[in-house]
Amino acid sequence: MTRRLVALVLVAAALLAVPLVITNEFYLNLASQILIYGLLAVSLNLLVGYGGMVSLGHASFIGLTSYTAVLLLNAGFDQLTTALVAVAFSTLCGALFGVLALRASGIGFLMITLALGQIVWGIAYRANNLTGGDNGIRFAARPQPFGVDISSAPHFYYFTLIVFAVALFFIWRLVRSPFGAALQGARDQPRRMRMLGHNVWLIQWLAFVLSAFWGSVAGLLYVYYNLFISPHAISLQQSAETLLMAILGGASTLTGPIVGAIIITLVKNVVSTYIDRWNSLLGAIFVIVIMFMPFGIVPGLRQLWVRWRRRAKTERAV
């Protein structure tokens, strides 16, 4: 337990020190991006990993939040109202999507979420006078929470880090809470859970809503970071990328999706500066991970570690 605490303190210190070490704005912004996508992947993982519901429409919450925020701000609302209403509206849509998607399970669930994601994308793409269509639409300026200016890269990084840490703390609590246990139980044995008195539908729907909520928070960070939203950001490919982050890192763990987000974001940005075959690489990673690493990197490494420790122990015993 204490060792974990030490590790946690070290990671926190490292995260806080990032802007001191990385002074190059490009790389610092990359760190902010990782946090945003990390939150998006962790929020999706509530569904995928802990709930066993594979969604291909999670990027729609980026879109719902971002477009709502842009429209509200342009209509003259203040930043706080804009942020609250945008996240609330997007979460509400998530609640509706959950009702629809939970009519089915497995592949049916996946396809309904895909269709819903495409509807959101299609509206963004086609409703020109509202969304700017393919060209996208600009978000006027970042807010100034408590009067603090977050327009510079380091300040924005800290802002994102705080939101990320708060979100991760809540999700961490949830995962080991009674509700989290019920969610995982409903994933493994829905029929038995009902027979134990659990309302499986309600558990899964609440998980969907919570996942949508944190996804919407990530969406808000997205529009703050980019100051811009276009249909490109909420395409099927973005949903698939988010899912890949969760699976690549390890959907059965809390930290896995963050590792996935780090890898995908770095590879995407670094690779795309050299070659423009990012999509091929993304597809290839997808295929390889699913075929050879179905449980992801974090559980895979953990297994190696356990094996290594066991071997070290037996060697010492000899």
Partner: peptide, 26 residues
Amino acid sequence: RLAGNVQGQVLVTLGVSFIIADLCLM
């Protein structure tokens, strides 16, 4: 190779669709 893993199969077809799209672009 993914027989029995329906979810994995769907995701693999998605991965391949990205590869096809990108190779066509290339």
